[in-house]
Structure formats: C-alpha cells, structure tokens
Simulated scan of single mutants.
Amino acid sequence: MSLFDSLFGKKKASKEIRACEGALEKRPDDAVLLKKLGDLYLKANLLENAADTYVRLGDTYNDKGFYPKAIALYKQAIKIYPGWEKPHEKLAELYQVQGFNREAAAQYVKLSEILEKSGESDGATTYMQKAAELDPAHKTVHKKAQSFDVREAGMMDPLPKTSAQPEVRKTDFYDLNSELDKEIEDLNIDASAENLVDDTGVDSIFKVIEETASEEGKDDPLFLYNMGLAYRETGLLDEAIESFNKVITIGEKLFDAHIMLGITYREKRLFSESLEALKQGASLDEATPEMKIGILYEIAQTYKSLGDNQNALSIFREIQKEHKDFKDVEVEIVRLAGGG
C-alpha cells in the first residue's frame, strides 16, 4: 500500500497514476513527477490525495528556496481541500519566515476557525494568539478575541493536592482584547481594519519584487528574467512574455529566457509561438546536449498540448533513448501510447 493509500484509504484504478507512483518510488523528490501525480489525483477527484501531493511538492520547493512556488502549491492544496490544517500551517510559517506577518496572521486565523469548528478550542485559542501577535489589527482577531478565555501559562499548571484553592482574581487572566486595544493604539492602526485587504496569495511577494524595480534597473536581464518568473507565477502571462522577450532582445540569459518564453506561450495556448521560441533556444551555441534534452521535452509538451500526440510521442521516445529516467517521460509514453 502506498503512502497516499495509507493516509486517505483511496483506491487508484488509473494505470497512469500507478505508473507515476512507481516512478516516484525511484525518485521521491522529483518535482515534475510530484506535480504530475497531484494533477492526476485532482483529475480523478481524489482531492485529499491531490492536496497531500501538492503540499509535498510545496515542501520540496520550500526547502530549495523557491518560495513563490511553494506558496502557490500550499494555496492550491487549500483550494481543493480547505478544511485541512496542514497547508494553512505551512503557508503561515513560510509567510512568517519571509516577513509577511499580516498574511501569516490571516492563515493562523483560518487555522483557528477550522479547529474551533471541530471542537478543538485549545488549539483554536493558540492559533488566534499567534495571529494576534503578528497582526493585532486584523479585524477577525479583534472580534474573536472577546470569545476566547485565554489564561496565562502559569494558571494552567495543576495545583498540589494539599494546597488550598486560591481566590481567582481578574489579574489572573490575560485580557487579550485589552492588550489588542493597546497594540492598536501604539501602532496607530484603525481598530475597525475595514481598509485592510486580506492578501494571502503570491501577489504580496510579487509586489515586493516589483517595488525594487528602480533599484535593480529595468534593463538588467537578470532582473527582467526574475520579473518574468514572478509575473508567470501570479498568472500575468502577457507581462511574463513581455519580460522574457526583453531579456532575449538584450542578448543575455538567452537559453533560460527562450525556455520560459516557450512554456508561457504554451500556457496561453499560442502553440506556434511556443514551438518557435523553444526551437530558437535549441539552436543557440550555448545549448549543451543536456540542455537540448530539456528543450526537446518542452517541445514535446507543446505538441501534446496542441493535440499532435504522434510528434509528442516520437520526441518522448527519443529522449528516453538518451535519458531513460528523464523527468516523467516514462509516464508520458505510457499515456500517449494508449496504456493509461
């Protein structure tokens, strides 16, 4: 029984899913295979499995420092399985590490609400306290604080059996609502917080990147390339295409720019433009044989998206001859050959 079966008790009938799981046993940290498996689970309506796989992929990107991708994957897991605590917690921790305290607080609030609905009041209180520490002006924190009876840690310790029961005074309790009022007053923040927007997506990170444009220089190819990646991560494909084309015009970082341009064109279903960009990248002098294998893989993906399965299958088979375990080529061949 696989990890996903043991976690969620789901049966997977698809040969394509089984092939992908088998490939992952050999390469458990392969990001392409994890993404493929998550998508397959989602397509099969195995939502818990899909969410778990996206979180696992998010962890892989998080460990490697690709934080926008990790955030996007955690949010994808939340979208398809919103009642699961784990992706909210992962997202909150990552936001906090990156210094996005308001976004982290919003996730802790959601965690608190999930636990409160399931009757776990202690856990709900803990997460609401975390949210209060990070963003005392959050309107939900301010409202919910009044419903929690939050004791100081010392009051939770059991009393010795021989001790007399002490008289409980108001000062024995932590008045979270009062403390929030003080924090709001000190920070000069509107207590109603009606003007605050609950931004919990990758947009917040993208805005930070965008705001550094004047410092980095708008004609710097590395900056433009990173901006293209950021635009693509947030779904702004036209802007991403513009950035990648600018990099190519400058004449630096050409190979990576051609690949990403081809992929982005494909995502916009501009298949002719995708093939042209990828083939131009393959013709560059700097392209090594290994790099060309990567471009061939993307060309095959474009043919597949175009509906030209014959050309796609032919290229995947050529890749497999040179690199048997390259990405998810084995899975693609099984599917396109009619074995899925």
Rank of each mutant, 00 (worst) to 15 (best):
307 G>K: 08
334 V>Q: 10
288 T>Q: 01
7 L>C: 06
259 I>V: 15
27 R>K: 14
5 D>M: 08
34 L>N: 07
147 S>Q: 11
270 L>I: 06
1 M>Q: 06
47 L>K: 14
207 K>V: 02
310 Q>N: 13
147 S>K: 10
44 A>I: 02
302 T>A: 12
290 E>Y: 04
138 H>R: 06
2 S>Y: 06
68 P>W: 02
151 R>G: 02
71 I>R: 04
43 K>T: 10
100 F>G: 03
60 T>D: 04
80 I>Q: 02
221 P>S: 04
178 S>W: 04
220 D>Q: 14
320 Q>V: 12
268 K>N: 04
273 E>R: 08
112 S>D: 15
220 D>A: 11
28 P>F: 00
325 D>W: 01
34 L>M: 14
302 T>M: 07
250 I>V: 12
105 A>M: 03
333 I>M: 02
257 A>I: 14
14 S>Q: 13
86 K>S: 14
209 I>Y: 03
158 P>Q: 06
130 K>C: 10
217 G>I: 10
122 D>G: 11
300 A>P: 04
122 D>N: 12
146 Q>N: 10
204 S>P: 04
146 Q>R: 12
330 E>T: 09
115 L>I: 11
197 V>N: 00
174 Y>M: 14
296 L>M: 15
155 M>H: 02
1 M>L: 10
22 G>T: 13
77 A>W: 02
230 A>Y: 00
19 A>W: 09
157 D>A: 14
109 V>H: 06
121 S>R: 15
12 K>M: 15
156 M>Q: 09
192 S>W: 02
235 G>Q: 02
162 T>G: 14
229 L>G: 03
136 P>V: 01
92 A>D: 03
83 G>Q: 06
319 I>M: 10
241 I>R: 01
185 E>V: 09
336 L>Q: 09
153 A>K: 12
166 P>S: 05
25 E>D: 15
267 E>H: 04
77 A>G: 04
127 Y>F: 15
98 Q>G: 06
338 G>Q: 09
327 K>S: 12
134 L>T: 07
220 D>E: 14
284 L>A: 01
195 N>C: 00
319 I>R: 02
190 D>A: 06
38 G>K: 00
184 I>H: 05
56 R>K: 13
292 K>S: 04
18 R>W: 01
77 A>P: 05
210 E>T: 01
91 L>F: 07
257 A>E: 08
86 K>G: 00
92 A>N: 07
320 Q>D: 09
228 G>T: 10
266 R>W: 04
23 A>Y: 08
129 Q>F: 12
313 L>P: 08
335 R>F: 09
22 G>H: 05
10 K>T: 11
114 I>Y: 01
